[in-house]
């Protein structure tokens, strides 16, 4: 499945801008939300191909957003792939939820924009 529209939910402005810049340059169409509530609303209102989701977010944590979107009786975003990005260690439960609901997981400090682009290409090719 080709990936074209991407939603980024990231509260760190420098990190958010950095990803938006690289993804735009690479030809993706990108929307960027800085808090968890806006991120959740955006994900439900527009069919994105990919959602890059931070964990430690204001208003709603990434885990909670995933739970709402994918933890119910039906998948509310069946056409969207979700990749979790974080720099923080997680509890065992949060990690299990993540593995159950997310399509990918990245440590931000280890991922440069260039590596993120390679990751997205691979993700697109995997389905």
């Amino acid at each position: 499945m080709p990936i074209k529209n991407i939603l980024i939910v990231e509260d760190d402005r420098f990190i958010g801008e950095m990803y938006v810049r690289s993804l735009n340059k690479a030809g993706y169409s990108v929307d960027w939300m800085v808090d968890g509530n806006d991120g959740l609303i955006a994900a439900r209102n527009k069919p994105y191909d990919l959602m890059l989701l931070d964990v430690m977010l204001p208003e709603r944590r990434g885990g909670e957003i995933l739970q709402i979107l994918r933890g119910g009786a039906q998948d509310l975003i069946p056409g969207t792939k979700v990749v979790v990005l974080t720099n923080f260690d997680q509890t065992e439960q949060a990690r299990k939820d993540m593995e159950q609901y997310a399509d990918g997981y990245l440590i931000k400090a280890e991922i440069t924009p260039k590596k993120l682009l390679a990751f997205i290409e691979k993700l697109a090719a995997s389905s």
């Binding site: 990749v83 997981y105 991922i111 590596k115 993700l123 995997s126």
Partner: peptide, 12 residues
């Protein structure tokens, strides 16, 4: 640096 579900390891 992370993982992709149902797929070989991502080598970033």
């Amino acid at each position: 640096s992370g993982w992709i579900k149902n797929h070989g390891a991502f080598r970033g």
